[in-house]
Design a protein around this nucleic acid. Sequence first.
DNA 1: AAAACTAGTTTGCAATACCAACTTGTTTCT
DNA 2: AGAAACAAGTTGGTATTGCAAACTAGTTTT
Lengths: 99, 99
Amino acid sequence: MNRQTQTFNELDRVIHEPGRLMIVALLFAIDQCDFLYLQHETEMNKGTLSSHLSRLEEAGYIEVVKTYRGKVPQTLLSLTASGREAFKQYRKKLKKALK
Amino acid sequence: MNRQTQTFNELDRVIHEPGRLMIVALLFAIDQCDFLYLQHETEMNKGTLSSHLSRLEEAGYIEVVKTYRGKVPQTLLSLTASGREAFKQYRKKLKKALK
DNA sequence: AAAACTAGTTTGCAATACCAACTTGTTTCT
DNA sequence: AGAAACAAGTTGGTATTGCAAACTAGTTTT
C-alpha cells in the first residue's frame, strides 16, 4: 500500500477545484475582498464565481456578507477559521505528496 | 492582475484530477506496471480506473499495452515522454503557486 | 419616465467523475 | 462437467463543473 499515492486521493475536493483554489488562496492572503475584485482577479464569469462561492459557503469555508457601498450592493467575502485550516491542511498534504 | 492566483487556473486538468494524479505519480516513480497493481495501489474501482486510463491515453500521457500473462489478459501501463514532461510541469506550477 | 448600468443569482446545457452492475473469456474448485 | 472466481473492460445512472444567457432589484443617466 503506497501511502504517498493515497495522499492525492485524500485531498479536499472542495478546495482542490482550480476555480475554488484561486478564491481560497486569494482570501487566505488578503483576508477580505468583494465579489467584483474576485471576478477581476480570477477572470471567472459571474455565474461560475457565484456558484463556487455558494459551494464554499455551504462547506463553511467562507463567510458571505451582503452589504452596500453607498447605495450599490456589495458582497464581501472572507475565509472562516475552518476555511483557513482546511487550506493549510490541503497545502500541507499536497506538498507532502509532491515530494 | 494577480499572476500567482491565475497559476491555479493554468493547471493541466487532465493531471489535476486526483484519480489521474495518483496514476501519473505512480507511473512516474515506477516506470511500468499492470492494471491490477494500479487498482490495488489507488484503491479505485475498475470502471473508474479504466476511464481515467483512457483519458490519459487520449491525452498521449500514457502508453497502454494489452498483452497476456499466459492466457490471462494483462494490461501494461507506462508514461510516455510527453506524460513525464506534463507531470514535471504540473508539479512545478503547483509548487510555485503554493509558495 | 424610459433606458442603461451595477451586482449578483438562476437556469439550461455539455462534459466529467464515480459507483454499481453487466459482459467476455479463462481458470480454478468440487 | 458445472459453478464460482478472476482479469479487464463497458454501460448506465447520478452528481459536479463551467459557460452563457436570462432574470432580478435597485441606481443612475438622459
